[in-house]
Design a protein around this nucleic acid. Structure first.
Lengths: 245, 245
DNA sequence: TAGTGGTCTAGACCACGCG
DNA sequence: GCGTGGTCTAGACCACTAC
């Protein structure tokens, strides 16, 4: 069954046509009125689809002119904000291996409890995983999953994708996250796992992730080898309401 | 004169009311129909305003329930994607000083020319600036501004904000940028300026910035002391069209 | 059942780019 | 002057939440 909303399927279709070269870099998409006729829909719906492409850096709209297809080849795979290993792995072809180092009960760290609210039950599942690409240790991921939301994490799930399990099996509605990126010295245990040599510095990506109903459920600390870390972002200039860059 | 669009002024008003505590964390905003009546507009316009708040991490909409005000205090100042010194300085209270180290003609580096297109004229103005907070050197910013777009950069502008000059004086329409964050070893000149000690590693933020008509005009290399670098982001879960996290 | 947000329509007027 | 995208309206139906 095709229960997808109209504007999303239009966005999907246009995205595919751009990525497959049917609409090429530097040219204009058909006008909104023409697209509305093509897809048998209203202009408002087409515009909603084009907002998706705009946010993903695929087109740039110019008033009075049209929608210019941007050079998406430059953004090839990491189209935006890709930081964690799973995301990279999903979007790129990598010879990647995940090793589960720990899977146990461990309460949410106190400093995180302070940020997300003291009223919460700190009981959580702790998962530590080592990510290896081409026999080289790249990332150590440490996840805390609140038991109140995810009662248990089977070993097989830890080996694969936590998000697939939560979204497809548990039907959880993951909505948003706050992330920070810093560079910090690490202890010996981590240094040994990532083979950090000259300096003991690593890139640390911390994420606090929330469900659609605003309940906090996951804290992730992702520790990257600095020489293999790369964060790519596409940002649009914001005006007036809140400066974004 | 107040030529601002209706939806933006509504977004502005709601943002202020949230930041000033008139709508408090965890409570619901008035429904979209009520807001439409309050502001004397249609529901569609209110919804467009609410999209702005959603993207800025101020509210979470829940179908059938309402718009929940999120804890904006947690995201205090760097609401999203703030990386460069100027942005930080604008949004925070800092005892900050800018020193212009270089202001001269210098062509765009060859590796950047490859990315933005060989047909461009590489003639550019090079600006190197040292950012100091509380007498501590934090960031070295290196900007290349294409002469074809920005013919000249007065000394006074280099001392202050390039973007204010370009937007307010030159009336340029800055639209979007691609950014990368990496960690790299730096040469002695940079190490000396930032007083890098134990390791010669620094955080490098590279930005390619474009105008509304898709012309490339600026390359920035921002070199941060790793122990003072912090990148904060608010990300929403994307589905189907393009994975964002 | 009543109220909410999510989607969609069919119109309208405006500001802008371009010939 | 014409076509473009940007804004806005007044309606409609649906899926979801809560009672």
């Amino acid at each position: 069954m095709d229960t997808m909303q109209k504007y999303l399927s239009i966005a999907q279709d246009l995205t595919n046509k751009i990525k497959h070269g049917q609409y090429t870099e530097g040219t204009l998409l058909p006008s909104e009125t023409i697209l509305a006729n093509l897809y048998g829909t209203s202009r408002a719906t087409v515009r909603k689809a084009l907002v998706e492409l705009t946010e993903n850096g695929l087109i740039q709209k110019i008033k009075g002119k049209g929608s210019v297809v941007l050079d998406t080849a430059k953004f090839t795979f990491p189209i935006s904000g890709i930081t964690t290993f799973t995301e990279l792995n999903r979007n790129q072809q990598m010879n990647a291996v995940t090793t589960v180092l720990a899977l146990e009960d461990r309460p949410l760290p106190a400093e995180i409890m302070k940020q997300v609210g003291r009223h919460l039950d700190p009981a959580a599942t702790f998962i530590q995983r080592l990510r290896t690409v081409d026999d080289e240790a790249i990332v150590v991921d440490e996840d805390y999953l609140l038991k109140s939301v995810v009662p248990e994490v089977p070993e097989i799930v830890a080996q694969g994708s936590l998000y697939e399990y939560m979204e497809d099996t548990l039907n959880l509605n993951i909505a948003y996250a706050t992330k920070t990126i810093t560079v910090e010295p690490m202890d010996e245990a981590i240094c040994a796992k990532l083979h950090l040599e000259t300096a003991n510095l690593a890139v640390v990506v911390r994420s606090l992730t929330y469900l659609n109903d605003t309940t906090f459920f996951q804290y992730t600390r992702s520790i990257h080898r600095p020489d293999r870390f790369k964060f790519v972002d596409f940002a649009r200039r914001k005006h007036l309401v809140a400066k974004k860059f």
